[in-house]
Simulated assay, not measured.
Amino acid sequence: MNQEDNDRRAVELGVKFRSDTDGFVAGVRFWKGPRNTGIHTGDLWSLSGTRLASAVFTNESASGWQEVRFAQPVPVKAGVTYVASYHTPTGLYAQDAGAFAAAGVDSAPLHALRDGLDGPNGVYAYGTAGTFPTKSWRSSNNWVDVVFTTTP
């Protein structure tokens, strides 16, 4: 994992995913390097760009996986594509180029989609928090994940 891309712009970074089963997304996780500072916000989106939930990360460690829970778990349907993302105001985020080019990442019942399934993956959008990420750069894994459960 490249723990720190040299990009220093505010950006929303995301991953497109599907589940094999109906369930609930309780929150969002992301990998943080030591210079990825500031207030981070986690979001869950429909594929069309409707924000389904949002929460601000608190009590972050200096580096490693960070996790935030939504006020209420969000129901998700099997086989439907969603986007989980987080916003960093400082950039310097973890990223691995090419990760979604030929294959997705499978950890049943969840699947981070390979490029070409519902468009590109490893999505991003520069700007303020809450901007729906639609662009992709080299099919990059931005090290964003969801907290998934089958019960609320």
Rank of each mutant, 00 (worst) to 15 (best):
Q3F: 15
E4S: 12
R8S: 14
A10Y: 10
L13W: 03
L13Y: 05
K16N: 04
F17Y: 12
R18I: 01
D22G: 15
D22H: 09
A26K: 13
A26F: 01
G27L: 09
R29N: 14
K32F: 00
T37P: 09
D43T: 14
L47R: 07
L47C: 02
S48D: 09
G49Q: 06
R51I: 07
S61A: 07
S61V: 00
S61I: 00
G64C: 06
W65K: 05
E67C: 15
V68I: 15
Y82K: 01
H87C: 09
T88N: 04
P89E: 14
L92C: 03
L92N: 00
Y93Q: 09
A99C: 08
A99R: 11
F100Q: 03
V105T: 11
D106M: 05
S107C: 10
P109M: 13
H111W: 10
R114P: 05
R114A: 15
G116T: 00
D118E: 04
G122F: 08
V123S: 02
Y126Q: 06
G127K: 01
A129C: 05
G130C: 09
W137N: 04
R138W: 05
N141D: 02
N142M: 11
N142Y: 15
W143A: 06
V144L: 11
V144H: 05
F148M: 14
F148Q: 11
F148E: 14
P152K: 14
